[in-house]
Each structure stands twice: as structure tokens, then as C-alpha cells.
């Protein structure tokens, strides 16, 4: 269905703004748009819930909690990602 209200955020736009939203870094008018979208959009509010749960879970992790093999795999993945391969 097409967007009836041209000033509204799409779900894709909201996802792109979510980190700044959680950091409190959005200007007021944009933050209000994000919040109003979250009020009615079940998909985006669930996405926000999962995002917050992930942040909460990773905050509890210490570096030593990672098994050596997982740590190496992750570092390897980041190295390849940074080289664009």
C-alpha cells in the first residue's frame, strides 16, 4: 500500500534512524516522527524491542566470556568485512 501521508517515515527509514533514536541524538521533530511510527507499527515496535534486548544482552558480555574459537571467527569476519570481501 502506498504512503498516504507524505511526511511520514517508512519502516526502512525508521530502521536507519533507530541507533540515533536510542542514543537520544535525533532532533525533536524527527524523534517525534519515530515515536509516532512506533505507536502504530507492530513490526517496527517489535524490531525496537529486539534491538533493545540485544543491547541489554551484549552489555552483560565480557571479552573473556567469548570462547577463543568464536573470538577468532568474529575477528576474521571483521577483517574480511573491512577489506570488502
Amino acid at each position: 500500500m502506498s504512503k498516504v501521508r507524505p511526511q511520514d517515515l517508512t519502516c526502512k527509514e525508521l530502521v536507519e534512524l533507530l541507533t540515533e533514536f536510542l542514543d537520544g541524538a535525533l532532533e525533536e521533530s524527527v524523534r517525534t516522527q519515530v515515536e509516532q511510527h512506533l505507536v502504530w507499527c507492530p513490526g517496527c515496535s517489535e524490531y525496537l524491542r529486539q534491538f533493545r534486548a540485544t543491547i541489554g544482552a551484549t552489555r552483560k558480555l565480557a571479552e573473556e566470556d567469548l570462547p577463543q574459537r568464536v573470538r577468532e571467527n568474529l575477528l576474521d569476519a571483521f577483517r574480511h568485512w573491512r577489506h570488502g570481501s
Partner: peptide, 25 residues
């Protein structure tokens, strides 16, 4: 009718804010 269908679907789910939103649309 497409918007009405979306509104009714959300109303049936109990997602009132979404139902109201689609109704206004």
C-alpha cells in the same frame, strides 16, 4: 477498501493504534 481491510485486520488482532491509523488513511 484496501485501507479498510488493513484497519479491520489490525482491529481483529487487537492492535488498536494500527487500526486507527489505517482507518484515518
Amino acid at each position: 477498501a484496501g485501507y479498510v481491510g488493513a484497519s479491520a485486520f489490525r482491529a481483529a488482532e487487537g492492535r488498536a493504534a494500527a487500526a486507527a491509523r489505517h482507518a484515518a488513511d
